[in-house]
Amino acid sequence: MGTTAAVLTAEGLRYRYGETVALDGVDLGVDPGECVALLGPNGAGKSTLVTLAVGLLTPQQGTVRILGSDPRRAATRRRLGVAQQTLGFPNTLTVHELVTGAAVRGGLRAAAAGPVLDELGLADLRRRRVAKLSGGQKQRVQLAMALVTEPALLVLDEPTVGLDTVARRHFWQILARRREQGTAVLVTTHLIEESAAVADRVVVLDRGRVLADAPPDELVTRLPDRTVTVRTGLDRSELEQLPGVLSVTPEHELSRIQTRSPEDLLRVLLDRDPHLSDLRVQDAGLEEAVLALTDRADEGTDATGTDGGYGRDGSQRAAEVTG
């Protein structure tokens, strides 16, 4: 974990809800100023891990420490800025009242709310009651409440849900800025590619286990998959028969082919189709890398039983973006 004292350390965390194992031995560390993205399919255990980290649940096995002390202690929690996955505010309060309230509860002056409201584009909505906000606006209020106390560690559980493209881009910028100021960040998200741009490290969780914990680039290069895009006369079923092909996705006039051995594929492909054009070979993205990891973990288990697996079609992400 480097030489500086870690902001968050989790060791051997296990947690089960009755029969359901949510966390099955998780180790995790976040250093000061580090941004860690926690990725994984629905039900992977992300929220459970986050809830343990902020001291709302007690580990059944293992330990969590925030700045060296127990997050179940109130004094420790005061160092955290938290946005939970399920948010709820009393409908009777306004945006301004909620954020100033959060500032005072965090031991700051109410005036601290002003700059944060500006930063999150909530200044115009400050007099509005939260009941009359859109989902994305509420999400921003929650974020403002987490940021206003200038925490040592931000713990954000799916903060981008419901944000539009502009707000989302803005959100990642805000995170990047806070990180530069030395705030550590632990963020769960399904927006894999977007998180890769900001995260120093990506932790992939599946069924309560850490499948990978590495910088995003490293995860991508670790994955041997390549994407070969071509314009070809061969149809999809013919392409799927070629050596080393994992999957084929038609894209307008082009075909996107996933493969682990692009050289072997190209040799055969050029041989079969003399008219082949528009050839492009790319690394797989982080999303592909994460999918490959979770898919590999699924192997040998009943495919129908993988509730909430990402699935190769990326429908998980599509749902998130339109949400």
């Binding site: 929690r77 505010f89 959060a102 965090g106």
Partner: peptide, 18 residues
């Protein structure tokens, strides 16, 4: 009861309000 249902009491616990 409302605060509990909303998750507001949880939120206060997170922000270390006794």
């Amino acid at each position: 009861a409302q605060d509990r249902d909303l998750g507001w009491l949880r939120m206060k616990r997170v922000s270390a309000v006794p």
